[in-house]
């Protein structure tokens, strides 16, 4: 079904949509890389949408979009599409373009190799069901209404993610002081949609020392059925983004990542808060080397795992925020477990 028709909060064990963006670094018409409103390389992703849906409950979410037509899709792009959904707890319905399907049908070596890598990546996430049970973590919360732009791709949630700031979405309908527990900053994208009780929750949050950023009035829901923003809405979100960027500065709101301009991440925490998991996904055609991760908290141990079978203990060193680890290389996807 279309995104806006998904029965959020219905208790259904499985949710699905055919609407998704094709994940990857956004390219300009001339082949150059598109810099997003954040000034970073812009990454098209479904992660914000998936996280917004999963903020309503633990239903299994499937995204069934297909590769773009008339485009050469490399094996790496399929891996990125699979992991784009999986790092946020969703699943992508593997769907090939006709060219790859034909090459796989004729059992071409490259296609078979890509197929095996896809299998390994899918197994990697399916062998860790505990990841889907963990909570999104971050000291920045974003309050948004799924019925009013909160399920879009390329919205403020994705903008913040592209800047590698951990953020957890809170549906307006679930906004309570308990939902904001642990947050030190909150962004209220659409103030007009809040009930008086919800506004009071945010006032209480601010009175207790939380930093609150409220978007300007005038938010207009894009035409129902659309999943990305029109130019006018993007410009409005740019204004909010600049304010968010200024508010966050270089503070560590869970984790700070370095040398990750072509990557997205997702930070999860266990129910007892003793274990954290950080997923890293590289959307470029090249491996990323020398990634640094600075996290808050007193984790003493860290292990790097990857779909290629890596399981490597990492040295944890002290930083101004807490601890840090360095990663030599990320091909497509890697996970750091901290405890």
């Amino acid at each position: 079904m279309a995104r806006h028709r998904i029965a959020l909060g219905s208790g259904a064990p499985i949710l699905g949509t055919y609407q998704g963006v094709w994940p990857g670094i956004s390219a300009l018409d001339d082949g150059g890389k598109k810099a997003g409103p954040t000034g970073s390389v812009w990454i098209d992703t479904n992660t914000g949408f998936i996280r917004a849906v999963r903020a309503w409950g633990d239903a299994a979410l499937w995204v069934g979009n297909e590769p773009p037509a008339k485009t050469v899709v490399t094996g790496a792009r399929y891996l990125q599409a699979i992991a784009d959904a999986a790092i946020s707890g969703g699943r992508w319905v593997v769907a090939f373009d006709s060219g790859f399907a034909a090459r796989l049908h004729s059992r071409e070596a490259d296609a078979l190799s890509d197929w095996r890598r896809m299998g390994a990546l899918l197994r990697y996430f399916e062998q860790h069901p505990e990841w889907r049970g963990m909570q999104e973590y971050g000291k920045l919360a974003i309050v948004q209404d799924p019925a009013n732009g909160g399920l879009l791709s390329g919205g403020i949630l994705d903008m913040i993610a592209v800047k590698h700031t951990p953020v957890r979405p809170i549906p307006r309908q679930h906004l309570t002081l308990e939902a904001l527990a642990g947050a030190t900053m909150a962004v209220n994208v659409d103030p007009a949609s809040l009930t008086p009780e919800q506004k009071e929750v945010l006032r209480s949050f601010a009175r207790a020392g939380g930093e609150l950023l409220t978007g300007p009035p005038g938010w207009k829901d894009p035409t129902p059925g659309k999943i990305t923003l029109e130019k006018a809405e993007l410009e409005r979100l740019n204004d909010i983004w600049r304010d968010v960027n200024s508010m966050v500065g270089r503070r560590n709101l869970g984790v700070r990542l370095f040398n990750v301009s072509s990557m997205l991440s997702n930070l999860l925490i266990s129910g007892d808060a003793k274990t954290a998991v950080l997923h890293l996904l590289n959307y470029s055609d090249y491996p990323v080397e020398n990634v640094a991760v600075h996290f808050i908290g007193a984790y003493k141990h860290a292990v790097l795992t990857s779909p290629e079978g890596t399981e490597k203990p990492l040295e944890v060193y002290s930083t101004e925020d807490g601890g840090g680890v360095d990663i030599d290389k990320v091909s497509v996807c890697a996970t750091i477990r901290l405890w």
């Binding site: 810099a35 000034g39 970073s40 390389v41 040398n259 301009s261 072509s262 470029s284 055609d285 090249y286 080397e289 020398n290």
Partner: peptide, 11 residues
């Protein structure tokens, strides 16, 4: 320039 702006993905 910004460290995120790269040529052919190279360091």
């Amino acid at each position: 320039g910004s460290p995120g702006q790269r040529f052919q993905g190279l360091a």
